[in-house]
Amino acid sequence: MTTEYLVLSAILFVIGAVGVLIRRNAIVVFMCVELMLNACNLAFVTFARQWGNLDGQIIAFFVMVVAAAEVVIGLAIIVTIFRTRRSASVDDANLLKY
């Protein structure tokens, strides 16, 4: 059982990572980040179940809380950027550079 969960978790993580790297739309990138986080959560819960203790479960809750907070901030930023620049592309927000 464990192996299957972990394989699923890895597949989800890779999908998320590739999405972050290749997509331009900030909302999609954001969703991909959430996918990676949840892939991690899956791995945590799997291991918690494997070893029969609650540490992984608790970490998963923390990750969810942090992710929720992050979503609030992140979406607010994305909306603000969209209002000022009329674009949600992460490549267009490139002023902070050398």
Binding site: A17, V20, L21, I22, R24, V29, V90, D91, A93, N94, L95, L96, K97, Y98
Partner: peptide, 17 residues
């Protein structure tokens, strides 16, 4: 070296990966 700071978020994401 500072040319590395391109301003493209996806480049940073790749280097983090």
């Amino acid at each position: 070296l500072r040319r590395v700071q391109t301003g493209f978020a996806r480049t940073y994401a790749l280097s983090i990966l």
